[in-house]
């Protein structure tokens, strides 16, 4: 008799207990996951820009070289214009522009580090 009256509430209460424990466990996991996510976000604010879309990068590459040559040409022309060394300034600076254009392309393709020895991705 005593056995029976004790026996019936026990499984019931243990079920709700188990339910509660399980829910608490899930809550704990969820909270931990979120705080981890937050920390990861904080740490990841300076991710390398390797995730920049490839198409955008291809578009970027296309004009870097030309721009270098043009810049060299402009500087050379100005040089000649003010110092009267035509056409030597233009020739020299076009060559330098060529080099600068190649440098631009290599740099934006990520093959060489950025100016001043830093990578454009940062430290």
């Amino acid at each position: 008799m005593t056995q029976g009256s004790e026996g019936s509430p026990t499984p019931n209460s243990s079920r709700t207990d188990g339910d509660l424990a399980e829910r608490r466990e899930r809550l704990a996991q969820e909270l931990k996951r979120r705080s981890d996510l937050r920390e990861a976000e904080d740490a990841g604010t300076r991710k390398p820009r390797s995730d920049a879309s490839g198409l955008a990068r291809a578009l970027q590459l296309s004009s870097e070289f030309v721009a270098g040559v043009i810049a060299g040409g402009v500087v050379g022309w100005l040089f000649d214009h003010f110092l009267g060394t035509s056409p030597w300034g233009l020739i020299v600076f076009l060559l330098l522009g060529f080099a600068a254009g190649t440098l631009n392309v290599m740099r934006s393709a990520g093959l060489k580090s950025g100016p001043g020895g830093t990578t454009s991705e940062g430290p």
Binding site: R24, L27, A28, L31, R34, S35
Partner: peptide
């Protein structure tokens, strides 16, 4: 809300 959830937990 998260802090509240943590606190309640």
């Amino acid at each position: 809300d998260l802090a509240e959830a943590n606190r309640l937990k």
